[in-house]
Nucleic acid binder design. Structure first.
Lengths: 115, 115
DNA sequence: TTCATATGCCACCTCCAGGTTGCATATAAG
DNA sequence: CTTATATGCAACCTGGAGGTGGCATATGAA
């Protein structure tokens, strides 16, 4: 088990690409936005405000779910969706790791130049 | 100009979806990773370690560039690419805003239940 | 000058993401 | 029981994403 941050990032990168891809569609991003209010919402509710078919929204929700961004639970005849805060945390940590890596290398470069 | 955080998020969301989409491909994510070491690298250099054609890598780099994740500068006969830290900052801020929104709504819910 | 290297541009191919419609089914409401 | 609502599933369509190879061109090296 290496502690090399680049190696760690590279190991995670496939799953991370999936999460990024899930968020890389404006419809899905708007769904995430709608769910970020914290209320669990059914597919029908999430469809109401959007110019798409219920089936389209349903597909998007499945994509978000299989990426771990969202989780669902059947309740009666409706399927209620909510954000999965864990995915947000992982995403944030990934972005921060890349930023830090980048900042570190810039600092190294600066130190070298000023030497 | 509303101060409503959801409205602000929604206004940004199109550009943000583009950035997420740019990072939502494992090849491009690995390019970002390679560039996160901080050295400017040419297309040929970035292609070396990958099982793809130079043209494919070139296309991916253009996508990253038009999303603002990367910037390039022609130098002699080579085109040198580097990470654009601004995009990373914006991404981080977006993820954090969604997280905060989510946390706030959970807190509200908790307060309501415990009332 | 001549040769090798680094890119850009273009045409072309294949496959899947994003949408739609139609039909079946389960559950709530009257 | 009958009707309306909420979803799931499957077939189908279309455009663009991701790759390739070929050829032209600019620049560094011998």
């Amino acid at each position: 088990m290496s502690r090399n941050p680049l190696a760690r990032l590279s190991r995670q990168s496939d799953a991370t690409a999936t999460v990024f891809a899930a968020l890389g569609d404006s419809t899905r991003l708007s769904l995430v936005l709608a769910l970020s209010r914290g209320n669990r919402q059914s597919i029908a509710q999430l469809t109401e405000s959007k110019p798409l078919t219920r089936q389209a929204i349903s597909k998007h929700l499945r994509i978000l779910e299989s990426a771990g961004v969202v989780s669902s639970r059947r309740e009666g005849r409706e399927n209620l969706f909510a954000l999965n805060p864990i995915a947000l945390d992982e995403l944030r940590s990934y972005v921060e790791q890349i930023s830090e890596q980048w900042d570190a290398s810039l600092a190294r470069l600066k130190a070298f130049v000023e030497k």
